[in-house]
Amino acid sequence: MSKIGTSVQAAAMNIPPGTFHGITLIGAVVAAVTTFLTLAAALPAWAMFLGWVGFNASAQTTREGVANLAAFLLGIVFGAATGLLIAWLTPRFGDLSTPLAVFGDVVLVLSLRALPRINNPLAYFLGLISFFAAGQPPSLRLLAALAAAGVLGAIGAGIANVLQGRLARAG
């Protein structure tokens, strides 16, 4: 992108161009370090990024981000339970098992928007996606790996948010 293009974007966001680029670099550096740590721990980087996105999904404060992380982690557990439910339903209902289980997930997750604080359906769904994207049967080891990767992503997101906020206030 040209300097003019980024200057126009920065002005539209009411951020000086130098601060705009600094915020971008902070996000990139923190994401790279978080990815390195995730891979060094032999965890899936894609699950780390789902945790990062889950933390930030509609969050305006760190407290809301932590609540989103809780919803993300519960979503992983719901995914494992859904995997078990599908396996249990399949001999009885065949190809209808997965749609029935998904129906139950959606009813559960959308009903949880009424919960105080831990009420972000997007974060729950990201946890569900994390489980199903792994493509493995439910196990404590899988849940621990996905949760650890998601927590690392949320920590990275939180650190990036704090550092970016400090730069924005200083700029």
Rank of each mutant, 00 (worst) to 15 (best):
R92E: 10
V106E: 03
V107G: 01
V66M: 12
S97V: 02
L128P: 02
F132S: 13
I129M: 10
P99D: 11
A67R: 10
V106R: 03
R113L: 04
G51R: 10
F125R: 02
I86K: 08
L128D: 09
L74I: 15
D105E: 14
V77N: 02
S130L: 04
W88D: 12
I118P: 00
T62N: 02
A41E: 07
N68S: 11
A40R: 15
L128M: 15
Y124L: 12
G94S: 04
F72V: 04
A45G: 03
I76N: 06
G65V: 06
V107D: 05
V107Y: 10
G104V: 12
V107R: 01
S111R: 08
N56I: 02
W88M: 11
S130F: 01
N120C: 13
F103K: 03
L100F: 15
W46P: 01
A67H: 13
A123I: 12
N120A: 03
L50R: 09
L43P: 07
R92V: 07
L73C: 14
V109M: 10
V77E: 09
A42Q: 15
A47G: 10
I129D: 07
Y124G: 07
I76H: 05
T62K: 08
L43A: 11
D95W: 10
G83A: 03
R63M: 01
A67C: 09
F93Q: 09
F103L: 15
L84W: 09
L39W: 14
A41V: 04
P99W: 05
E64G: 01
F93C: 03
L84D: 06
A70Y: 09
I129G: 08
A87E: 13
R117L: 06
L122R: 07
A41T: 11
L108Q: 01
P121V: 05
P121T: 08
W88P: 00
N120Q: 15
P44D: 13
L73S: 14
A71K: 07
I118W: 08
F131I: 02
L126R: 03
R117W: 14
N56H: 12
L73W: 10
R63V: 01
F78R: 00
I86W: 04
V66G: 04
G54K: 11
G51L: 12
S130T: 14
L39R: 15
S111K: 02
M48V: 00
F132C: 02
T62C: 02
L100A: 14
V77K: 01
I129W: 06
W52K: 08
